[in-house]
Amino acid sequence: MTGDALLSVRDLSVRFETPDGTVNAVNGIGLDVAPGECVGIVGESGSGKSQTFLALMGLIASNGTVTGSARFQGTELVGLPPRRLNQIRGAKMAMIFQDPMTSLTPHMRVCQQLSEVLVRHRGLSHDEARAKALAALDQVRIPDAKNRLDQYPHEFSGGMRQRVMIAIALLCEPALLIADEPTTALDVTVQAQILDLLGDLRRRMGMAIILITHDLGIVAGLCDRVNVMYAGAFCETAPVGPLFRAPQHPYTRGLLSSVPRPDQRGGALTAIAGQPPNLQMLPPGCPFAPRCAYRFDRCDTERPLLREAGAPAHLKSCHLGGFTESGAVLP
């Protein structure tokens, strides 16, 4: 896997020094992304899913430190000086964010924001950049792109702004797009179109996508492989089919059963009791143990490592034997 991986992350950790102590936001993540693959990262707020990838992009806050390794097309990203990083981010690796309004500069015309990347990374002239910007807006299906090129971000709707963000990210045809909750701020009908667009662009450009989200439904529709994140670490990683058919970690099972399904109206949802752990004081054992219905002695003392869970490429960090498809517990 390591040989042909586009992105290869090993034992990546992110810590923040705060006046209240050290926050262990990310604790030893390992991940491989192949060219053209779509990998989902699922987790709740504070699970470290955004910080992991902000760290790769060199965008974490100044009180944070990153350790471990992340190789992108053979280049080590951790510790790379900003000048070298700037040749990669935006050009070969791009990121889009949740809130399309605050990610665009409000006093710059859309055209300028699009052509900035091209002038900087590709050395195009202004006219060439403008023509390419127009093509980019067409590509993300913005109607009447020619006239909208000279508008300001506030003249665009939320969905259209996210399209502009995607257009900017795709200008240099990156090999990897990191999409951090790209549709969370959008209405469902608009969300469906943006996801459709991402899937379509991926097929046409052969681009790999890392999709960070809290919504299991989005992952089900778009991703090849899914990593479920809890307390700064992956607790389960699997191809999308097995993950939904036979989830092996109690947290994944809990997440799936907390989501209301159209075929199961009324009735109580099986909620996960309790709260996510404090990342300043992680327990010595399994970080999910205090909320886990299957907890036993070993869970409190020994942190479970990622290990094979029955099927190839299906890993989990849990001391339990596993679960069958019908939900029975294996010892």
Partner: peptide, 22 residues
């Protein structure tokens, strides 16, 4: 049809009725 379903086979096979986003 726009609401995502947390089930890969249902989500990928469902009939989608797309409407304009403006």
């Amino acid at each position: 049809s726009a609401a995502p379903i947390p089930d890969p086979s249902l989500e990928r096979d469902k009939e989608r009725l797309m409407i304009g986003d403006d």
